[in-house]
Design a protein around this nucleic acid. Structure first.
Lengths: 212, 212
DNA sequence: CCAGGAATAGGTCGGTAGACCCATAAAGCA
DNA sequence: TGCTTTATGGGTCTACCGACCTATTCCTGG
């Protein structure tokens, strides 16, 4: 599997932190490896986890996100988010070393796309976001998993829905039991597993139950 | 399964909305059935989904959370959350019909506990939160799933980690293959499934892989 | 003290899953 | 045109899984 993008997020609201963490971790290619609720602990977390991408809220008590990141020597590609649509902080965010500046009004998939974009070396400021993010909308899956075909996905989807018997799968997909077994064999090979139970685990990990 | 608590959440920040939705849906006993990004659409969403609990942010553009809920005739048990620790809105939230007033500084498990508490008829204002939420910390699972024993959970945990073969499970848990089969049989009965693949699906649905 | 549940383990047996071989029709692409 | 992939299907065989029944030990609650 392509190694997931390791992300650290900082926000003074624990609720936001927990929510974002859940949301981002639900994507197959992004892993939240650390969180911080204020600017002072952010440095330690970044130093110990060495994330690929840093995500910070501008509004933080004590030390603002901006000043917090400006005093990090080894700043990873950093996205600054704000509650306000205002561009007021944009300039200072850039000066502090951020490579992207976004609003919290964005939906989560867009944030995910932005994370992939900056992990890829892109900068996201004023420019048209929709266009800049276009290439990063779909999660980067492992090369093996990407070769999963239409019909094989049908089988996986059934598995995840709790249809696991060969006969049940055959009935559900209107194919012979033999074909089901063939598809399963292909799936096992592509996901590097060797039975239905492990296939379910992998499918869920990769998010094959949600997307497509 | 005990029917999950149906929740509608309103927040002007899409990111918060998506994050909370993910976080809450990851719990086995809470289901987010609707969301609203502003006060004006909130009414329609509540009317069409009829949630058990409503969760609204005070700070919303156009119409504040407070005024939005005060003009709903048929208000479900409602939790008002705020970014600020300030109690300023507390009184007006109560007057508008809310039964709880919380800070966004709370961690997600506490919010979940609060949701369970208000769904259960509790009111959560000034009082000591920790104590008020104590009874609602653990997710309410289905009665069958709650009888899953320690050792059976070990087996499930292994399954979810991709250890599915009888021999592998036996080695991992230092028990005989026969005992593994016994535990599996109990699990199947308690989760109403009939093989390892379905057990994995159920375990993940119930969140048995995360908790305990 | 005894009943009951949990964890451990043994046996048998039918059914099925997974591995390995193969074939054919259709579709996409060079 | 032919090569490759995909979807469909067949057969065989071994190993394994799941269902059913029993048993022992330990611990906890009444």
């Amino acid at each position: 599997m392509n190694t997931p993008i390791r992300v650290v997020i900082a926000d003074d609201h624990q609720l936001m932190l927990d929510g974002l963490k859940q949301g981002l971790n639900s994507l197959p290619d992004i892993r939240v490896v650390g969180t911080a609720v204020d600017g002072s602990t952010l440095g330690d977390v970044v130093a110990s986890t060495e994330p690929d991408v840093l995500l910070v809220d501008v509004e933080m008590p004590g030390m603002s996100g901006i000043s917090a990141i400006s005093r990090l020597d080894d700043l990873p590609p950093t996205i600054v988010v704000t509650m306000h649509t205002a561009e007021a902080y944009g300039k200072s965010a850039r000066e502090a070393g951020a490579v992207a500046f976004l609003s919290k009004a964005l939906p989560l998939p867009d944030l995910a796309a932005a994370i992939r974009a900056v992990a890829d070396g892109q900068h996201l400021f004023d420019r048209d976001l929709d266009q800049a993010l276009a290439d990063y909308r779909t999660p980067r899956l492992s090369t093996r998993a990407e070769t999963i075909t239409e019909r094989e996905r049908d089988v996986l989807r059934c598995l995840v829905q709790g249809i696991s018997g060969t006969e049940d799968l055959a009935d559900e997909l209107y194919i012979s039991q033999k074909t089901v077994k063939n598809h399963l064999a292909s799936i096992y090979e592509k996901l590097s597993v060797n039975d239905r139970a492990q296939a379910v685990v992998e499918a869920m990990k990769l998010g094959l139950d949600r997307k497509w």
